[in-house]
């Protein structure tokens, strides 16, 4: 880490903590609203909620590690404060690094290089924030009308909403799967074994009747896929 990065890191820490704290506050507000509604109408029992919380927590662990390598690379270039602030707020680590790189290149500098001064770094952070801010502005403008329209549509006897959910998901999943698989045989193996492992869990649940196994489906799929992909990677050299 250069001195400029260290200087900026020291300044950014308090802002990062405030912003990340705010992310937590937003989630708490939404959660409280959902739980109040749930309590009034008794949609899920306390035991259900405990099980959902456990299931969600377990399901979040594996995917959270998907950023570990990029986060470590990012810390070495832009320091821990900016990394934490940007990956904990809207950003995905690789997207943030790409944004910072676009800005640095615009100014003829490289991230973490000699010409990456405090002023250039500040502008790079501006680029990272700018890269995500329009998403928020978009949601501010479009989400409420879109939601109103969708709820109106879902009241109809034959609603388009279930088709919308399925087509939107397959539109993204199909494209994402292909672009990931085109990254090489190990990645393709990862997809196939992720699929097979989750199929295996479902089959085991059906056979044993142990619904609790479903809490682990994402974790087991990730381990199955990662082990197979890493094995393929090692075998293929």
């Amino acid at each position: 880490m250069t001195q400029a990065v260290k200087n900026v890191t020291a300044v950014v820490w308090p802002f990062a903590i405030i912003l990340l704290g705010f992310v937590i506050v937003q989630s708490v507000l939404f959660m409280t609203n959902a739980l109040k509604f749930n309590k009034k109408y008794n949609l899920y029992s306390k035991d259900d909620l405990k099980s959902i919380a456990k299931s969600s927590a377990v399901s979040s662990i594996g995917p959270s590690f998907s950023v570990v390598v990029v986060v470590i690379a990012m810390i070495s270039l832009v320091g821990p404060a900016v990394t934490f602030m940007r990956t904990g707020v809207i950003g995905a680590a690789d997207y943030e690094l790409w944004l910072a790189d676009v800005v640095a290149t615009t100014m003829g500098a490289t991230i973490g290089g000699e010409r990456f001064t405090e002023a250039v770094f500040t502008c790079a952070i501006f680029g990272m924030v700018l890269g995500s801010a329009p998403y928020m502005i978009n949601l501010l403008i479009t989400l409420k009308p879109l939601d109103t329209l969708a709820r109106k549509e879902s009241k109809k006897k034959r609603s388009f909403i279930p088709v919308l959910g399925m087509t939107a998901e397959l539109g993204f999943l199909g494209y994402w799967a292909l672009s990931t698989a085109s990254g090489g045989i190990p990645k393709t193996v990862g997809i196939i074994f992720g699929l097979l492992s989750s199929m295996g869990v479902t089959a085991a649940v059906r056979k044993s009747g142990n619904e609790k196994l479903n809490d682990w489906i994402l974790g087991i799929a990730l381990i199955g896929g990662m082990v197979a992909a890493a094995a393929a990677d090692t075998l293929l050299g």
């Binding site: 570990v68 399925m166 799967a177 196939i192 992720g194 199929m199 199955g224 896929g225 990662m226 992909a229």
Partner: peptide
């Protein structure tokens, strides 16, 4: 090998999401 495995979280995740669908 563990670091290599981390780079395959996303493909495995895609496999699971396909099964959910």
């Amino acid at each position: 090998i563990v670091l290599t495995a981390f780079s395959y979280v996303i493909p495995s995740l895609i496999g699971a999401l396909i099964w959910f669908r």
